[in-house]
């Protein structure tokens, strides 16, 4: 159902990299799981409305009012790299 090429493609979408040695194992394991979930096709779901949340709820609205927020220093406290009160990342646009 799923092959090594698919695994490489999905890994790229998910910003993951599977080591060459593990690719075969991952492919087999994911294939096993996907084959198992195939059993959902035994059920006829024609006309069934999908459920995202099981407890019925309407749109949850609140007043648009300024509240408390986390101060900048606190929000930056866990940053692996920061500069001038901002998160710093490697260069995005090359020269």
């Amino acid at each position: 159902m799923i092959n090594k090429k698919d695994v490489e493609y999905i890994a790229n979408l998910a910003n993951l990299k599977i080591d060459e040695d593990d690719k075969e194992l991952f492919t087999r394991q994911l294939d096993d799981i996907l084959n198992y979930v195939e059993k959902l096709n035994e059920l006829d779901t024609e006309g069934v409305v999908p459920t995202a949340y099981t407890v019925p709820m309407k749109n949850v609205l609140r007043e648009d009012r300024v509240g408390l927020s986390i101060p900048r220093e606190k929000a930056l406290a866990n940053a692996p790299d920061k500069k001038d009160g901002q998160f710093r990342v490697p260069r995005i646009i090359s020269e």
Binding site: N15, L16, K17, N78, A79, P80, F87, V89, P90, R91
Partner: peptide, 21 residues
Amino acid sequence: VRYGYRSKKAHDVKEMFTNTR
């Protein structure tokens, strides 16, 4: 980017994301 581990091995952003994860 904002918290947690960041890989040391990264030359660009995509590589940083991927190696970190």
